[in-house]
Design a protein around this nucleic acid. Structure first.
Length: 559
DNA sequence: CAGGGAATAT
DNA sequence: AATATTCCCT
């Protein structure tokens, strides 16, 4: 960065003294600009040669806050090179060329703005805004987020352009996290519409990132596009199709949709499409936007646009973390064993969602549970000697569900009790965790001890002592602790915290856990019952572990 | 027929 | 893998 947030905050008379790098091959125009900028109290450094400008910024001999680069018909390439190289410098492209292609290319390559000549004083005077923006937003992290909408709107514009009408729509229907819907692939255009839904590209990074890709070559003009697909395939969607209302936001996959849209005219779109990939690329692998998804936050947003209408076709519901949370909440309210689609639907109150959507989701949800819980139970009670047969019932009282009951103090967000359902978006890496909570991302055993909640230990304890190596099973049960942890981190709740010190027996527990881990073949005599500290200690003592083990040496189990 | 669920299809 | 659709049963 050229200018940090703090610097700006301390900068008095802010825009004054801002250092502007002016790159313009036209010396006349350059000098004119220079004087104008200087009158505005900017400090101007003029360059007529791109390379010079580049070396100036790379050498860091001077610090610039913002760059104004001219793109002319004759040297359009030049400016781009600069643009691509000066990633950290907010760069404003100026041109008298009225070409949307050029304009887009500039923006795609990272220009903060594209100004058409002639430049009014106002425009010029306001260039500082980009510096501020950059300074406050360059942090990096949120970039992807902010770009998304940008890109989206760009796409919308591109699509709509031909028509000229603005994309206002924005549905908006919901205030909350709604569902984002993705148009189904098959859908198509047949009937109405000409403009496919806009898309929501899922890109994750900043525009500048584009650099990696070499747009110069293909960028905009190339369209050709893939063509391969669509042609006839467009199958019309049944029913409704056209009308539709967009109640839910519709997100399209840029790729497909664009493709269709483009079909003929639009180079823009094509271009865009090309740009898209690189940018959006989430996974090296390729296409399929679905994979990328990711940001939980945005997910909810969905603004989308969609615009324009028309497509209601079948949309795919995107179960964002938020949406899933609602779902879980509803299920919890109803009771997992009595949860049925229609009721869940009611409780969720999410516009656009259908019973079918929920049924489908519910199916998946149940499957997850079935797969995970039983397995754990097996591990926990390898032999049929349950001290507490009553509690063996899998369903209704699975630990998962039971949790809230036993440890109401924690019971708060429903989601917390469904370990297997940590919303995908919650993971930074974007990995989907439908079923993998235990297999991946879980915390290493070493961290178990941090959990101060006595009650929570129950699961930890009860959980299979079998080490991961044994396979299949997940060594870490859906214990609330792990889950909470995850959730807590994700949502910022500090659910389980580090209040470790609260518990006197921490050491003991820690020790035992380690023991269990080291000796998986020795099942701990703990049932699932919500173990109280006493019971835990008691159990331990039966195993020969001193209630309050000396901290210096590890206890042994006589056996 | 409506709705739930599991099996399939995409 | 995640959703949507379809099929079958109550």
């Amino acid at each position: 960065m050229v200018c940090t947030e703090n610097e700006l905050l301390e900068w008095k008379d802010f825009p004054k003294g801002l250092k502007v790098l002016l790159l313009d091959t036209d010396s006349n125009f350059a000098s004119q600009m220079r004087s104008r900028l200087q009158q505005m109290d900017y400090i101007v450094y003029t360059f007529c040669n791109e390379n010079e400008a580049l070396s100036a910024i790379s050498s860091k001999s001077e610090v610039f806050h913002v760059a104004i680069v001219e793109v002319s018909a004759g040297n359009s390439d030049g400016g781009f090179k600069f643009l691509e190289s000066a990633k950290d410098l907010p760069t404003i492209m100026v041109s008298d060329i009225h070409s949307i292609n050029i304009m887009m290319k500039c923006i795609a390559l990272g220009a903060v703005e594209f100004l058409q000549k002639p430049l009014s004083d106002d425009k010029l005077r306001n260039i500082w805004q980009h510096v501020v923006h950059k300074a406050f937003h360059s942090g990096g992290k949120s970039v992807s987020e902010s770009l998304k909408p940008v890109k989206e709107s760009l796409l919308s514009i591109l699509e709509l352009q031909p028509v000229k009408h603005e994309a206002d729509n924005e549905n908006t229907n919901e205030a909350e996290p709604l569902i984002s819907v993705v148009e189904n692939q098959k859908a198509s255009s047949s009937c109405c519409d000409k403009y496919p839904a806009p898309s929501t590209p899922q890109q994750k990074q900043g525009v500048r990132s584009v650099d990696d890709v070499d747009y110069q070559d293909h960028t905009i003009l190339s369209n050709e596009q893939d063509s391969g697909m669509h042609e006839g395939d467009t199958k019309s969607v049944e029913t409704t199709s056209c009308d539709s209302v967009a109640e839910t936001t519709v997100l399209a996959d840029s790729s497909e949709r664009l493709g269709e849209a483009i079909t003929k005219e639009e180079h823009y779109s094509a271009a865009d499409q090309h740009m898209e990939d690189p940018i959006a690329t989430c996974s090296p692998s390729n296409d399929n936007g679905s994979t990328c998804s990711a940001d939980p936050n945005k997910a909810s947003g969905l603004h989308s646009s969609s615009g324009t209408k028309a497509n209601k076709k079948k949309m795919k519901v995107d179960w964002t973390p938020e949406l899933h949370k609602k779902f879980v909440k509803a299920v919890e309210k109803i009771g997992i064993d009595q949860a049925i689609p229609s009721r869940i639907l009611e409780l969720m109150k999410v516009e656009g969602l259908t019973r079918h959507n929920i049924a489908s989701h519910l199916q998946k949800f149940r499957m997850q549970r079935k797969q995970i819980l039983p397995k754990e139970d097996e591990r926990r009670w390898p032999r049929p000697q349950p001290r507490d047969p009553v509690q063996r019932t899998y369903y209704p009282h699975k630990p998962v569900m039971a949790f809230p009951t036993h440890h109401s103090n924690h019971a708060t967000t429903a989601g917390q009790f469904y370990p297997a359902w940590i919303p995908p978006g919650g993971y930074p890496n974007g990995a989907h965790m439908w079923n993998s909570p235990y297999y991946h991302g879980w915390q290493p055993p070493e961290t178990w001890h941090w959990n101060p909640q006595p009650g929570l230990y129950a699961d930890v304890w009860g959980c299979p002592v079998t080490p991961p190596s044994l396979g299949s099973c997940t060594p870490y049960p859906q214990n609330a602790s792990g889950f909470h942890r995850a959730e807590g981190m994700l949502n910022g709740y500090s659910i389980i915290q580090k209040s470790v010190d609260l518990h006197p027996a921490e050491e003991v527990i820690d020790k035992v856990v380690k023991e269990a881990i080291n000796k998986p073949w020795l099942p701990l005599p703990l049932g699932l019952k919500p173990p109280s500290t006493e019971s835990v200690l008691d159990a331990l003592s039966k195993q020969g572990i001193p209630a309050v083990p000396p901290r210096h040496h590890r206890s042994h189990r006589p056996h």
